[in-house]
Design a protein around this nucleic acid. Structure first.
Lengths: 202, 202
DNA sequence: CAAACTACTACACGATCGTATAGTCAAGAG
DNA sequence: CTCTTGACTATACGATCGTGTAGTAGTTTG
């Protein structure tokens, strides 16, 4: 995960193992014993370092969020997009994002706070667009949800395109597709009009 | 859920309760006892009707998928978009989609199959676009993942826009925002060029 | 040197899980 | 009438869960 070299303590290994298993199996389904086994320690040590499963989870939330923002900071280039947006496009953050979405789904305040920060940043960005949407807040919220949401279906997208999106070429195809979606209108003006008319009738 | 009137048997109530709790808490975290309690029956009856938790889950997958397609069929209007795309836009399918994504995340073959069908349909649709993306398959896959993925962050989107997206006005704002995202380019051509150049360098 | 602290393991606890079994009750068949 | 069948409940089982406790080894501190 591209982490600092002195971060290989047992505590760090437990946290990494927890993020992995929480992501793969869901938070409830990942047991402390399995996390300990993956980290190569006893289950008692997990409790020693983190106190409880809930506290372990919050430590993972905090770490994932901080790493996301930290990577975003490092990547900001010549006054371009917001740091959160840059971070979401970088492959290193893929496992972090996937974890954060899973944690969000299971009611993490920390992860939800990060989401709201992304929406705020996206809202400011949206106002700079040449054509401003009517409901800027909703636009930014849905956009953020779409960007994050893609990663929860990572296995399905990988299966659909025939290669793992975590691989270099797969990730390149993913980001290119996202850029295309954000630049090529998905609907023709006629289809849009038809759908809006239809949705007003029902 | 707008279901047929004669579908109020104990079996149906159990299935509905299972879909609700599986969605809210995750599949592993929702116990058979809680599902039985929500359906107003004993836990033994759940086993009697469905055999095992895994079988109950597969029945829910099957039901949710069929309802989605069925609603899509009913909604198809004058030779417009594919039925899956129409279905994803309709408020009735919101809980079904949310469930299916959660089930997908935990490795449901049935739900994944539906996703792949959506990608196939989206691929055909993409080819009719005035401007065709270079990687049609990846484009369709990411688009489908984005549409589905929004709903896993339903609570977060609701919090961001200040009202429940399941409410009529909240859902209207959500769909409008999705339409805007799909018609208004999120990036200016300069930003796109800058980002592509950057991603080639790294 | 002794005391204290930290990293760590082993093991036992109550609770809850999915599952299994036995039995009740009502309706229909012969 | 008896017999069968299906919907349904009550209860018990082994396994696994998060957590608690006791203890060891090594280092630090006074």
């Amino acid at each position: 995960m591209d982490r600092p070299a002195d971060d290989l303590t047992a505590r760090a290994r437990i946290r990494d193992a927890a993020i992995n298993l929480f992501t793969e199996r869901g938070i409830e389904a990942a047991s402390i014993r399995d996390i300990a086994a993956e980290a190569g320690v006893s289950s008692g040590l997990v409790r020693h370092h983190f106190g409880s499963k809930q506290a372990l989870r919050e430590a993972c939330d905090q770490y994932a969020k901080e790493r996301m923002l930290q990577i975003g900071e490092e990547l900001v280039f010549q006054g371009g997009a917001a740091r959160t947006d840059v971070a979401t496009m970088h492959p290193v953050t893929l496992p972090l994002q996937t974890y954060l979405v899973r944690s969000m789904m299971d009611g993490s305040d920390t992860a939800t706070a990060l989401f709201l920060e992304m929406v705020d940043a996206g809202e400011d960005f949206t106002k700079t667009l040449p054509r401003e949407p009517s409901d800027v807040r909703a636009y930014a919220a849905v956009l953020a949800a779409m960007k994050m949401g893609v990663f929860v279906l990572r296995d399905q997208v990988s299966e659909a395109i025939g290669e793992d999106i975590a691989s270099p070429t797969g990730y390149a195809r993913l980001t290119k597709a996202m850029l295309d979606i954000f630049t090529i209108p998905v609907m023709t003006p006629e289809q849009l009009e038809q759908l809006q008319k239809y949705s007003e009738e029902h």
